[in-house]
Amino acid sequence: MSDHSHAHDDGKVHAHVSPFLFMVAIFGALVVLTVVTVAASRFDFGSANTLIAVLIATAKAALVATFFMHLKYDKGFHALIFVMSFVFLGVFLLITLEDVDTRGRVDNASTVRMHERRGEQAPGGFVLDPRGVQARERQPAGGGAHH
């Protein structure tokens, strides 16, 4: 087969066998990181809270993927597609967030602004920009909330 470029081309399965204690040590590290993430959630880092949680989770995920899922001893391509799935997810998240965060920046009359029922600002609408977009007066709840 064209894919076979290994030194040992006897066609047998050659998979890495990890030492028992090493695996247990990885589990220990995962538990420690869990404690760290719980502890970190006790402190308020402001807007960095989510980022810190995601970074610790990524460290844990990396340990699981690298050692429990054998990515370290596996074909590099498997690691590549694994990482790529997060890259594509990042694209999805970032561009969608870009839309949600900047709605109404240019033309603040262009979107629905509030819940018809509650008269509260709609998450689908924009948050009034403190940097100078003039706040329009809030229309009464029910009826006529759409521009």
Binding site: I95, E98, D99, V100, T102, R105, F126
Partner: peptide
């Protein structure tokens, strides 16, 4: 193909910045 989906939403009320990007 994964970077352009918002061109279906130019008139949907999505952000003008997103619209320009897409």
């Amino acid at each position: 193909g994964f970077l352009v989906w918002g061109h279906h939403m130019f008139t949907s009320g999505q952000s003008e910045w997103a619209t320009m990007l897409f």
